[in-house]
Each structure stands twice: as C-alpha cells, then as structure tokens.
Design a binder for these strands. Structure first.
Length: 560
RNA sequence: UGCCCCGUCGUCUAAUGGUAAGACGGCAGACUCUGGAUCUGCUUAUUGAGGUUCGAAUCCUUACGGGGCAGCCA
C-alpha cells in the first residue's frame, strides 16, 4: 500500500501504472511484492528522459515499500562501454535514488543459455542458417505473411548440437542464429520467428571474450526481469508491440512472469532527446562534452546548476501516460526556480558593469551594509556587503532615454541601491569618440540608508550593485536553449542549433562574499537568475553558469 | 492502407457512468528595498457522427487525426 510521502517535492499523483500496481496488490497477483527496475543500455549518457523513467520506477518502489533494481541491459558489446556504466551509476545516485540490486544482463548469460536449451528441447527454438538478408526477405511485409525458414524443422538433437557449436565458436559471425519457433503469419513481426542469439565476436565490457554468441534484447530482457523477480516491467511505448513476445517466452519457459507496461517517453520542447544525435553533438564538437550545460543529459543539467530535487519535482508534475507528447520546457525551468527560490542564497553580481561615482560620498570611505541572504528563509541569516564611493551597476539598469514604464536609472531619476541608499543620476560621462556611456555621476541621500529611520522613502525601483574596490572578477556563462525550434528534428536538425545558446561574459563583478564559493554551489544573483559555480571555476578565477533566469516582467513589457 | 497504440484548455496531467479540475504558459490587478517571490482574477478543452443510459470525456460502433511496427539495435 502507498506510504505517506515524506518530502515536499515528492508527492506524485497516481498514474495508470501505479493503478496497475494497486490492482496487482488487490488481486494478490505477486504475493504483495512490488519490484521494479531501471534497465539502461550503457551506450550513452543518461538524459532527462531517463530521469522520468528513473523517478517512475524508483518512485513506485519507494512508495509501495518495494524494491527497484538498476540493471544494465548490456547485450550488445559493440556499442557498450564501461565509461557509460560509470556515468549512469553516478547520475542515478545524484538524482537521489539507491538501487536495491545492481545487476547486468550479462550476469545472466549462462542462465539465458540454459533457458534457450530448454526451448530447443521443447521444440520451440531452432538454429537457422539464413543470412540476415534472407531472414528479412522471409519475414514478409505488413500485408503479407512471412515464409518459414527451410531450417525450421531441424530435429531437436541437431538444434542442440548446432547451438552448442555456435557457443563453442565453430561458426563465422552471422553464419547462424537461434530463433524462436512461433508464427511466420503473425500480423506482429516480433512473433515471426524472432532471433534469440546472434554470433558476434566482440569484446564485451564485462565478459570479455568468453562469449561469441549474444542474446537479443527480446530474449534477454524478459528473462532477466523474471530472474530478478520483477513484478512490474515498465518501458516506453516502442516496446508495446514486443509485449506478446515478452509474454510468449515467459509462458513457454513457465517461469515468473512480470507485467510489462508501456508509457510515453518524455519529449521536451527545444530539446534534442535522441541518444544517437546527442552523441553526434558531442563527437562533432557542436557542444563541448556530454556534460556541457546545454546538453539535456543528467550530467549537463547537474553542471548547469539543476538540483536533483527540481528534476524529481518535474517528473512528478508531468505525470505518466500513454499519449505521445511534447512537454513545454518552461515547466522544467519553473521547477528549478521553485526549488532554488526557497534555498539559494542571494548575492549581488553585475554582469555588464557600468561605473558610477557617488559624488557626495567621502573619498576613501567604506561601510558594511547588512544584506538578507534569503528572504524566503530567515534561517539563512544576513551578511555584510561593502559600499563605497565608486560602484558598478548593470549597464542595462541605465537608459539615457528611458522608454515608457522604465523604472530604473536615467538622467535626473532616482533609484534605490539594494540594501544601501537612494541615489540620483546627475551626470553622464561618454566616450568622446564612440559616444558610449562609460560612467555615471550620481549623488546619494544619506538619510535613506536601508534600515534607518528615514529609509522609508519610496522610489520606483531597486537595483543591484557592487563596490568597485571590493568586487571580485568573474566569468559568467549565459545559456539559452540549444535549438531554435520547439521540435528539432528531420535530416537538417543541425541547422536548427541556436547560435546564441552560449554567451560567455568575462569581467563580471561579483560581491566579495563569493570568494569562497565551491564548484556546484548555487546562488541567486539578485534580479538576474540562478547561477551555479562551474567545474572550471578556481579560487581567484570564478566561473558561473546561469542555470535559469528569474521571471523577467520587464523583458515582456519591453518586447511589446 | 495489415496489425497495434493514442485523441481533454496553447502545453501537460486529472476526472475511473454523476458539477470537466490542477499545473505551466498567456492576460489583468494587488503587494514588494529583487520589474524576484507571494496573492487575486480572467482566458481556453472532452476530434466528428451514431448508439447504450435517467445521465457519457468515460461504455459500444464508426469516421477522422496522430504515432508505432518489416535490426542478427535497445
């Protein structure tokens, strides 16, 4: 039965898969046990789509007091690598899940072989000498039934002999296969005598060169589920048509029979989710690495500054169904904002500095002003921020000719400097040659210091700033969506890559409290967004990634 | 045009024969020392046609639309 939820972000609504579990419990189909599994193939890095599956499978195990295994579906040695195994392990853990069993389909190769022998003896599998091309021809078409292989009726003894010799390495790669004997006239191609084993001399990342025959997905998956006592084998829609075969193998073997259930995979707007194409992005240098913060990989999101909580919350919010869909990426972004709004310390940082001089502030004077670390969390406390005569503000917070509804600084106008004083712009210094504004002359009102008795005077807006002499330099990497269209696809998908997906801004100025920030620390840069210390960051050479912007009402107004 | 799956606000998800609900987005407004956060209001949906029923998003039939399936990939 469902347990009480323990955390705020993990309050999943029910879904049709949980309802199936409920039904199993009610009918006692699996003796009250709930066992799921997450079965990645180690041929690439995990992405946000996998996160949906991970949260689903591990979430069910958690909420039903069951178990969830992590099992690598490593039946194709030509594509799989230890590097991927390692990254998957790390990503699942980072997402906050602990597997009950850690298994590999390759652990079961011997058992699978025994099972195959059983089917052969039952007359339900045979060794076929047809080539790959011939098998395809014999398979028929959607409207025409297939043709039975001429090798279909070999004797059990001959099949046993041949299959043993396949394993022993007596035949060339691709020379023979072991096939299930089902029904070449089935409207479901998967039932037209599907291949169970192929001869393949490739070094497996775990079993090395011990095997030269490898089980296919269909043959390995269900039986692996059965061996582990899985009750609910949850997979994506494309395996729906494989379910009759999944069931057939288990029934013929007469072993524990999990329930396969399919759900719609995650598609995110403006995001590429194809593993193959993500690999291409990396290999062709279109992004810097698998964990490039623009990548939808778990490691990419991690580096960018996403929290495991936000991703879990996302998985809960989007739900599970059988309907193919494209999820709006803004939902994911909102999940991050929601999480970081509650937790991230606030800090002041100026991305594109504009120097201002407070003319009536004493030369050489500095004072420490108190700033709130997180207005959403009083326990986060306060810190001191240095203030002095020369400051930097955001270039964007000044307009010489302010448009309507522009509340910030302009010649003659007043704004509050966050946690400091109200200032007035009294002069604009421009570069003689370019006409560019290079400095602002301002005055401050000493009566308006934040927190003081007379500080309640209202001005239209409050802007962030840093003290020029105290500020730290930093590099900030601004990310935008990797693709320019909602649904990047088709053959020319690479043309759809957003040329502005990364903007590196050097010579940013950040408040001195950031001196000791560590890699992966996350902050809200007030009025700008949430930022995360990048892997490349070093003391004295800070590098931040923008994980997500704040909601920007002004940007909307100005767009109109 | 063989078989299988799926059609609910712009986008997702819910409603399990009994008032079509929530989230994100959008649009207004309130509040605010973050144009942040928060709060309020508004917007908009059951693919069509038949049928069963007192009553249908839900069950049946059918049409239409979308997706999938002919790897010795998973």
């Amino acid at each position: 039965m469902a347990e009480e939820k323990t955390t705020v972000e993990n309050t999943p609504r029910t879904n049709f898969i949980r309802e199936i579990v409920d039904e199993h419990l009610q009918t006692n189909r699996y003796g009250g046990k709930v066992v799921t599994r997450f079965p990645p193939e180690p041929n690439g890095y995990l992405h946000i789509g996998h996160a949906k599956s991970i949260c689903l499978n591990f979430g069910i195990a958690r909420d039903y007091n069951g178990k969830c295994n992590l099992r690598f579906d490593d039946t194709n040695p030509t594509k799989e690598e230890q590097e991927y195994v390692d990254s998957i392990l790390e990503d699942v853990r980072w997402l906050g899940f602990q597997w009950d069993g850690l298994y590999y389909a390759s652990d079961y190769f011997e058992q699978l072989y025994e099972f195959a022998l059983r089917l052969i003896k039952k007359g339900k599998a045979f060794v076929c000498d047809l080539t790959a091309d011939q098998i395809r021809e014999y398979r028929g078409t959607p409207t025409e039934p297939g043709t039975e292989s001429p090798y279909r009726n070999r004797s059990v003894d001959e099949n046993l002999d041949l299959f043993t010799r396949m394993r022993a390495g007596e035949f060339l790669d691709g020379a023979r296969t072991l096939r299930a004997k089902i029904d070449m006239t089935s409207p479901n191609f998967n039932m037209r005598d599907p291949v169970m084993y192929r001869i393949l001399r490739a070094t497996h990342h775990r079993t090395g060169d011990v095997w030269c025959i490898y089980p296919t997905y269909d043959w390995a998956h269900g039986q692996s589920d059965s061996i582990e006592g899985i009750t609910n084998s949850v997979c994506t829609l494309e395996f729906e048509i494989h379910r009759p075969l999944y069931d057939w193998f288990l029934d013929e073997l007469g072993i524990h029979h999990p329930q396969q259930t399919e759900f719609a995979r995650l598609n995110l707007s403006y995001t590429m989710m194809s593993k193959r194409r993500l690999l291409q992005l990396v290999e062709e240098g279109l992004v810097n690495s698998w964990n490039d913060p623009r990548m939808p990989s778990i490691s990419g999101f991690r580096r960018r500054g996403y929290t495991p909580e936000s991703i879990r919350s996302f998985a809960d919010r989007i739900g599970v169904s059988k309907r193919e869909y494209i999820q709006d990426v803004t939902v994911l972004e909102d999940c991050l904002r929601e999480d970081l709004n509650a937790r991230a310390p606030r800090v002041m940082a100026v991305l594109r500095p504009l120097k201002i001089v407070i003319e009536n502030y004493p030369d050489g004077q500095a004072e420490e002003l108190e700033a709130v670390n997180n207005p959403e969390d009083t326990a986060a406390g306060v810190r001191k921020v240095p203030f002095s005569k020369v400051l930097y503000i955001e270039q964007d917070d000044f307009r010489e000719a302010p448009p309507k509804k522009y509340f910030r600084l302009s010649p003659g106008s007043e704004v509050r400097l966050r946690y400091a004083y109200i200032i007035k712009c009294v002069g604009v210094v421009k570069d003689e040659k370019t006409g560019e504004v290079i400095e602002l002359r301002c005055t401050y009102d000493p009566e308006t210091r934040s927190g003081s008795a007379q500080s309640s005077r209202k001005v239209k807006s409050t802007i962030h700033w840093v003290s020029a002499t105290h500020a730290l330099n930093a590099e900030v990497r601004l990310y935008d969506r990797l693709f320019t269209v909602e649904e990047p696809g088709g053959e020319d998908w690479k043309q759809l890559i957003n040329p502005h997906s990364l903007e590196v801004v050097k010579s940013c100025k950040v408040e001195p409290s950031l001196a000791n920030a560590n890699v992966q620390d996350r902050f809200q840069f007030e009025r700008l967004g949430y930022f995360c210390v990048d892997d490349d960051s070093k003391p004295g050479a800070l590098v931040f990634n923008r994980a997500v912007t704040l909601r920007d009402t002004w940007a909307k107004i100005e767009k109109k």
